[in-house]
Design a protein around this nucleic acid. Structure first.
Lengths: 208, 208
DNA sequence: GTTAAATGGAACACTCATGATGCAGTTAAG
DNA sequence: CTTAACTGCATCATGAGTGTTCCATTTAAC
């Protein structure tokens, strides 16, 4: 669905591959400052002519798709590196969080074009989603997650926490500490565990 | 800072006020489908001429500012209605959540222009932020929140959860149930409280 | 070293949104 | 009812981004 055009044809010259890489990097950089920046700005930042950008990416849409593809590819690496399918859920989740956090920081802008909520648009590839989902399912089975929770909600919250952490993180701070914060928040929340919220919430609900 | 231009002059004719309201509503509607839709599309949806939109809002920026102002105004109402300053923290938080959730659903698009993270741009008014912050501070004092938590993080997570819930919510579902989910998630997380995550997390961290 | 690929640069056509103006007709407000 | 405000419509100017084409020049690949 989001196959980049520059892969089906026969091998590009090292030259061209290099340009592509520079353009993608520049796009990430430029779009980080302004998501609606012109392709000319991207070209300049990449140190190439505007026509070259156009030669490699037939349209703006194409470039954006390519950026999302980059994210998906890196996400795949991250999932592999975290052994999401074999490691104990908690460990896998933690590792995945660290990796994704780094990825989010290095490719902030490109993530913007990954419309998770949108319908027919660019999104996280199905296999990546599936891997995360199965990890969450395993987490539930193992008793890591509270029985009865909606896994889609968990996924949403998880992704959202990573997003917020990545945005809040002052550049260059330890990813593992933030990952820890994310895990803590995800699993235990920010409330004082000594209280019985359930009862309190129910009471205040009734009150209305 | 973001005062709408149409308030300092002397009273507008009922006519004009009406147009403004229709334009704002239409803008919300149109931008929900496409945030970069043209002002002409907004005008058509509002049932007015494009020039009228222009007469009421000198520029696109102006219109966007006005939309954000609407959100802030409604947010103020919500805060007042929830007695954020006087009610017990948990109750206030719950009520505020319900109200904000409704607001988010009814004004999805406009919220998009409320760049919470951004620096000099449109954002939630200082007084609204302050009210929420003081509510969270009270929550902490009362022992509702875990001692030692970073209140900015709590605020971020809270806003984020509301956002995700509003987006995930199938139109017309009970806001209070979702509010409950948000509170539960915020305070207790989605983990199984029977486990000792702290120890587990520390152990798996060491392992790396 | 020969060849095909890749680039830079200039030029062009095209679309689209924005913002401004002027004016005739309608409508709210006193 | 009279006036000033407001609206619709038609028009124009402008600017910006996109996408295409052509050609001379450089450069990688075998």
């Amino acid at each position: 669905m989001s196959e980049t055009s520059h892969r089906s044809a026969r091998p590009l010259r090292a030259d061209a591959e290099n340009s592509i890489a520079r353009i993608l990097a520049a796009a990430e950089h430029v779009f980080a400052a302004d998501p609606s920046a012109s392709l000319e700005a991207v070209a300049k930042a990449a140190g190439v002519a505007r026509t070259t950008v156009h030669r490699r990416f037939s349209s703006r849409e194409d470039l954006l798709d390519a950026l999302v593809d980059v994210v998906n590819a890196k996400l795949r690496e991250a999932a592999a590196g975290a052994n999401v399918e074999t490691a104990p859920p908690l460990v896998a989740l933690y590792q995945l969080t660290v990796a994704t956090l780094e990825l989010k920081v290095d490719w902030r802008a490109s993530w913007q074009f990954v419309d998770l909520g949108s319908e027919g648009a660019r999104g996280i590839d199905a296999d990546n989603v599936a891997k995360l989902d199965s990890l969450l399912q395993r987490s539930l089975n193992v008793g890591l997650l509270r029985p009865g929770v909606d896994l889609r909600w968990v996924r949403t919250v998880y992704m959202s926490l990573i997003h917020e952490a990545a945005m809040a993180r002052p550049d260059g701070e330890s990813a593992s500490e933030w990952a820890n914060l994310i895990m803590q928040t995800l699993l235990r929340g920010v409330g004082n565990t000594e209280h019985d919220f359930e009862a309190l919430l129910t009471r205040s609900t009734k009150r209305k």
